[in-house]
Amino acid sequence: MEILRVKLERAGYARGREILRDVAFSLRSGEMVGLIGPNGAGKSTAIKAILGFLGHVEGRVHLKEGCRYGYIPEHPVFYEDLTVWEHLELAASVWGMPRAAFEGRALELLERFQLKEARHHLPRSLSKGMQQKLMIVAGFLLQPDLYVVDEPFIGLDPRATKTLLQLLEEERGRGAAVLLSTHVLDTAEKICDSFLLLHQGRCVAQGSLNRLRRQIGREGASLMDCFEAFTSV
């Protein structure tokens, strides 16, 4: 089942200042697509266009009817005076999550990311890695149909990275789709079904790793090899 279909003809922060051109792809239930590209390629801009955060978009973003999505941003965003637990309560209340279901899910996620003892702390008192884990917990709380995840591995310790990868696989097994923007190409190569490679605001390649290999004419090439071949021009 198709969860998301994107066709961006032009997108940017204002008309005449377009950053993206001709970016099109789709995501199906249980599929994970890796959004990759060098710094400044337009990955975060593409995510903002999909989520409706940009000032100027020409094109169309279609979500499955009734689709709920969870967004995990690259940089943690908090309310200064809310505790970790209160942030999660707020997220649950927005979607009308039943109290019993919320408490069970929230405590499970906090335990898995070793945040349970910090649940009554203010986020500003936490390390950057712990703040990032809170963003992940909030994103996974509601078990949406679509996850949009922007550079989630930055600042995570190995144990938290492993927990995140396990959660992504669990959610895919449940039928959720995942759009994952990352620079960690060795990890993306192992977990993503296909890739969308942006360079200078355009999609220069997309498809499975085998398809990318065929396009550069290198059987057995790594995702990094493909990345370098498509972005070295």
Rank of each mutant, 00 (worst) to 15 (best):
F230C: 09
P144G: 06
T163K: 13
M135Q: 11
D157T: 10
R17T: 10
Q200I: 07
G70S: 14
H56P: 00
S222D: 07
A101G: 09
H75R: 15
S44A: 12
W95S: 10
A46L: 15
R105V: 09
E2A: 07
V33G: 01
G207D: 06
R21V: 01
E9A: 12
E189Q: 15
P152E: 05
L212W: 00
D145M: 06
G52R: 08
R218I: 11
Y13M: 06
Y71P: 03
R99F: 12
A160Q: 01
E74V: 06
M135N: 09
S208D: 03
C203Q: 13
T45Q: 12
E108I: 10
T187Y: 05
M130L: 13
D145F: 08
A205V: 02
E18R: 02
E219T: 14
P123Q: 02
A138S: 15
E117C: 03
V148R: 02
P123F: 01
Q166K: 13
T182A: 01
V148P: 05
L126F: 03
F25E: 04
S26M: 07
K48L: 09
D186E: 15
M97F: 01
L168K: 02
Q114Y: 13
F113V: 07
V61K: 01
L4Y: 12
A176W: 12
R119K: 15
T45Y: 08
S29N: 05
A24Q: 14
E31W: 04
G155N: 14
A41D: 05
A100G: 05
T83Y: 06
R119C: 12
L223V: 02
H120G: 09
D193W: 02
C192G: 01
A24S: 15
E171R: 14
N210T: 03
G96Y: 07
Y79E: 01
S93K: 14
E80N: 05
E2R: 14
R105W: 08
Q200Y: 15
S44G: 06
D145G: 09
L223Y: 01
K43I: 08
S222R: 11
E80T: 04
L164H: 04
E9V: 14
G42W: 03
P38G: 08
V33N: 00
A138Q: 15
L185R: 01
M224T: 12
L196G: 06
L212Q: 02
R213N: 03
L107S: 11
A11K: 02
N39D: 14
V233E: 13
K190L: 04
F227D: 02
A92S: 12
E117N: 07
V57D: 03
L82K: 08
F227R: 01
I136W: 07
L51H: 06
D150E: 08
F113H: 05
L35T: 00
D193P: 07
G59R: 03
E117K: 14
I47T: 00
E9T: 13
G16S: 12
G104R: 15
R119F: 11
A49W: 06
E65S: 13
L165N: 03
